[in-house]
Nucleic acid binder design. Sequence first.
DNA 1: GAAATAGTGTCTCTTAGACACTATTTC
DNA 2: GAAATAGTGTCTAAGAGACACTATTTC
Lengths: 227, 227
Amino acid sequence: MRARSSSSARAGRTPLAATVDLICCSVADGRLVVLAPVAARGRRSELPWLALDAEAPLESAAQHLARSSAGRAPTWMVQLGAFGAGQRHPAGSALSVAYVAVVPIGTAAPEGMAWQPVDALDALGPRQRSMLEAAVVGLRDRMDIAPVAFRMLPPTFTLSELQEMYELLLGRRLHKASFRRALQSAYLVEPIDEWRSEGRGRPAQLFRYAPRKRRGIRRSVRFELLD
Amino acid sequence: MRARSSSSARAGRTPLAATVDLICCSVADGRLVVLAPVAARGRRSELPWLALDAEAPLESAAQHLARSSAGRAPTWMVQLGAFGAGQRHPAGSALSVAYVAVVPIGTAAPEGMAWQPVDALDALGPRQRSMLEAAVVGLRDRMDIAPVAFRMLPPTFTLSELQEMYELLLGRRLHKASFRRALQSAYLVEPIDEWRSEGRGRPAQLFRYAPRKRRGIRRSVRFELLD
DNA sequence: GAAATAGTGTCTCTTAGACACTATTTC
DNA sequence: GAAATAGTGTCTAAGAGACACTATTTC
């Protein structure tokens, strides 16, 4: 068979149902959590989704879905990719475009929705399970090039809070002095003239995310292939 | 408006046309090239695509499209994401799922197809142009975690060829000694008992891609945010 | 021998992590 | 003062890039 390319028949002959799905992440009780509608007892859980129509741009649809499920605009969002591939979806759609979004720690879940720890959200359908796994990996992998951790924090935060957020998302402990040194030389935060005392211990200075333009970050070649 | 989640209507009410699109890359004459059907004079160029139906898994559809357009199975392939968003597509589809694939240098284009330098493929439609740009960035960004450069080379190659491939994809020169040192300590290649003489100069030893399992690559935290 | 390409040894500078320390608060 | 948390200075080892060199081929 040689359908080689576009010289074949026009598309549109086989219309299919598609959705935009949302993995909206935040942090609660020191765990990564995801927004999901409260499921009835013993029923399948699912992630928020929206039927996609031909007119609306993907980004708008995702933004709209995020706003309506989280009750506020996400502080960061990115497309994860398309999922389909014979995996069942709650909407019965053939294709789903997944977006991962982030809202700051402490954001309340709207009526009918709840924050579920990502590792405790069992009863998901197969396709949405794949998406959730991709989302967790995706957040971790993008932390070095996108302000994921910052967007999960309130506008002002302490460096310890920032480090804890990094540790949570990366899933491992970090070295305090190294963390601060690297942060310093990246010109990403700016101290504000405010301190916060958290019970015992010396009060911590508050910082704000204020990235300064940096020219040409010239990474060296890295060979971290696993395959 | 509060459609909050899946509690709204079932999807499937608004079926739409979708395609799988392929950005199949290789190298020719020291440039990154992409596979495209030969366009008639003055006509729009386009990238290979395939109408997507509800049954076939995305991966299979992409594999099939790649085989039929390149005349062989790609040596590496990954999904780039979904594109739609009000950008026109040659098939008139509402949604396209893009895959970027790689075949080794020197692969001949099948009848009716041709290798076009990525920076010379002007007359693409808006959606496929976005995909092409995403593909080039995607290849570059994945080089450190996936064997993209290796898959663009024949099974055996010299270290100079490998370095040139890295330089081409990264778009910058690399330091020879550093490159080899890093490669060495990554245990990715294996010398074979064969040398190649390329005209003048000392013959180069041939190598094979033979990654050895490495446990826990523990990258340090990096802050390379641009946003 | 000259030119060209392959491949390596050494030096320096940067940086990540370890360690240990100082600083400031509550009890 | 003890305990707890914030924040820093210094040492060491690893790694990247620069430089210069050796090695092996064709002409």
